[in-house]
C-alpha cells in the first residue's frame, strides 16, 4: 500500500522564472513599435489607430480571455473614453495626460454600468446579447446628445496641448504615435502584473468554474465587476488616444462594428495571453490596409476568408499557433507563465 508518508520526502519543484520572457516580450513590442516609426513615417496616423485598437483588443482580452465573459459591446467603453476626453478637450482641458486619465475614468465608469447589466445574466449568449444592446444604447445616446457630442457630425475641433509642454501634436502624427506607443507599453506592463496578481488568478478561476470559486468562499460578482472597470479604463485610454490623435470623435467609436472588429482581432491573435491582442490587431489592420488598397471593392471578402482559415486551422489564434510550433508559452497555460 502506498502511503502518504512515502510520498512526502519529495520536495516541491522550484518554479521556473517567467519574467525574462515578458521582459523580452515588452522589449520586442517596443522594438516593433519604434521600427514602425522609422519604416512607415507616412503612415503614422494609421499606426496610431492600430495602437488605439490594440488597447481596445487588450481590454476585451481581460474579459474574454481571463474571465470568460463574451462581449460584443466593448466599443461602448472605448467610445465613453473618446467622448469624455474629446468633450474635456473642447472645454479647455487640453493637457494630454489629463485627457487620457479622463478617458480612463470615463471608460471605467462605463465598464461599471456595463458590468452591472451584463452580470445579471449568468453567462454566454444572454451576456452577448446584453453587450450588443448596451453598445447600441450608448451609440444612440451619443447620437441624441448632440449638444455635447456633435451627434452624427461628430465632435471636432479638439486641439490638445503640447506633450510635456514641448512636443506639439504635429500634422505627421509623430508625437501622437510615440505618445500612443508609450501608453500601450505602460498599459501592457501594468496588465501583465494585474493578470498575475491574486485578483487575476481569482478571475481565471471564475472563468473555469465559478461554483468552485464560491465554494472557496469568494463572491464572484464583485471580482468580475472590478475586472469590468479595469477593462473599461484600458478601453477608455484607447478611446482617449484615438480622440487626441485624430482630433475628432465620431459615432463610429461607439459602434457595434468596432466592437465586433476588435473581438475578431483578439480571436485572430489568440485570447488569454495579452500578446494575442497586439498580434491580432497588427495583423488584422495591416492585412486590411494592404488588401483594401489592392482591391477596394472586395477586401472585406478576403478578410472574411482569412478569418475562416484561421478559425479552421488555428482555433487558438496566432499566438496559439506559435506556441504549438515553438513550444514557447506566452500565456497562462503551464501554471507558471
Amino acid at each position: 500500500m502506498q502511503t502518504l508518508a512515502q510520498t512526502q520526502p519529495v520536495a516541491m519543484p522550484q518554479p521556473k522564472r517567467a519574467w525574462w520572457r515578458d521582459i523580452v516580450g515588452v522589449a520586442l513590442i517596443a522594438a516593433v513599435g519604434l521600427a514602425g516609426y522609422w519604416l512607415f513615417p507616412d503612415n503614422l496616423a494609421l499606426l496610431t489607430r492600430v495602437i488605439a485598437m490594440a488597447l481596445l483588443a487588450l481590454s476585451i482580452d481581460l474579459l474574454v480571455g481571463y474571465c470568460g465573459i463574451a462581449t460584443l459591446g466593448q466599443a461602448a467603453l472605448f467610445g465613453a473614453g473618446a467622448y469624455a476626453a474629446g468633450i474635456a478637450c473642447v472645454n479647455g482641458i487640453t493637457e494630454p495626460f489629463t485627457l487620457v486619465l479622463i478617458g480612463a475614468v470615463a471608460g471605467s465608469l462605463a465598464g461599471l454600468v456595463m458590468g452591472v447589466v451584463m452580470l445579471r445574466a449568468s453567462h454566454g449568449l444572454p451576456q452577448l446579447v446584453l453587450s450588443i444592446a448596451i453598445v447600441q444604447l450608448f451609440h444612440e445616446a451619443a447620437n441624441k446628445a448632440s449638444a455635447w457630442t456633435g451627434g452624427s457630425d461628430g465632435l471636432a475641433g479638439l486641439s490638445p496641448a503640447a506633450l510635456f509642454g514641448v512636443f506639439e501634436f504635429d500634422l505627421w502624427g509623430r508625437t501622437a504615435y510615440l505618445f500612443g506607443l508609450g501608453l500601450l507599453l505602460t498599459v501592457f506592463i501594468v496588465l501583465k502584473f494585474v493578470v498575475r496578481s491574486p485578483f487575476g488568478m481569482l478571475c481565471r478561476g471564475i472563468k473555469e468554474d465559478p461554483v468552485r470559486v464560491g465554494a472557496m468562499g469568494a463572491f464572484v460578482f464583485p471580482v468580475l465587476l472590478k475586472m469590468f472597470m479595469i477593462s473599461g479604463s484600458v478601453a477608455g485610454i484607447g478611446g482617449a488616444l484615438a480622440a487626441i490623435s485624430t482630433q475628432v470623435v465620431g459615432l463610429d467609436s461607439v459602434s457595434f462594428e468596432l466592437s465586433a472588429n476588435a473581438l475578431v482581432m483578439l480571436v485572430l491573435g489568440g485570447i488569454g495571453t495579452l500578446y494575442g491582442a497586439l498580434v491580432g490587431t497588427v495583423i488584422f489592420m495591416g492585412f486590411e490596409h494592404v488588401v483594401s488598397s489592392i482591391n477596394p471593392f472586395h477586401w472585406m471578402t478576403l478578410v472574411g476568408v482569412l478569418l475562416i482559415v484561421m478559425v479552421l486551422f488555428a482555433p487558438r489564434g496566432l499566438t496559439g499557433l506559435m506556441e504549438t510550433y515553438t513550444g514557447l508559452k506566452l500565456g497562462k497555460r503551464g501554471g507558471r507563465a
Binding site: 502584473f193 498575475r196 496578481s197 491574486p198 485578483f199 481569482l202 469568494a218 472590478k226
Partner: peptide, 9 residues
C-alpha cells in the same frame, strides 16, 4: 487578500 490587484500572488 484574493481580491488584490497590486499584490504578488
Amino acid at each position: 487578500r484574493a481580491n488584490r490587484v497590486f499584490a504578488r500572488f
